[in-house]
Amino acid sequence: MTLFPLWNSIRIAFFSSVIVFFTGIFLAHEIVKLPRLLKGVLDTLLTLPLVLPPTVCGYFLLRIFGLRRPLGAFLARYGISFVMNWQGGILAAALVSFPLMYRTARGAFEGFDEDLAGAGKTLGLSDTFIFWRIRLPVCRQGILAGLVLAFARALGEYGATSMLIGYTPGRTDTISTTVYQLWRTGNDLMAMRWVLLNLLISAVVLIFINLLERKP
């Protein structure tokens, strides 16, 4: 049994989580400050991937990054492509897992006591210090929970991933696409092994979230 799908899933989930961590925090933090109408519109837009079928997300990604689309063709000229290679998996996983990070981070920021920021300001602290050393650490629990959820979602992504990068053994296969492929080709025993591995990973993630949610 080659472990490439495991390794591929993990690296895709890792890079996707890094992207989603920073963009999620940034957007959640900026959107809290916006006027209500704009906030509502952007909030809907950013949460959409959570409720859309992943295949629809994959369809959108193909419309944008497909090699015959303007942006895809433009990037291809510089040797950058997101179709049918593992880097595209990062994009698909990031898009689908983004709302989980974004919404949990936003919830954490909304529960933040603004007086703490006010105290920091009157004590002479810079806005950068207040954000990185006060706001983030105080909202740590929510942000970490969002990150773990986003990582778990990215690890299990199937729909958008299979549309954008397909299934090429040894190149683009992930745990979820492998399970499907093995089942489709009647290799039930191998499919079962991957399923058990997947269950193990998911259980670890859930235990981790529960530990985070416990008050220190």
Binding site: D113, D115, L116, G118, A119, G120, K121, T122, L123, G124, L125, S126, I134, P137, V138, R140
Partner: peptide, 18 residues
């Protein structure tokens, strides 16, 4: 605020909990 040199005691003291 950081250039105003004002000492502000907040209602719940606003100590940084971490």
């Amino acid at each position: 605020p950081r250039k105003r040199h004002v000492g502000y005691l907040f209602q719940n003291y606003a100590l940084f909990p971490h």
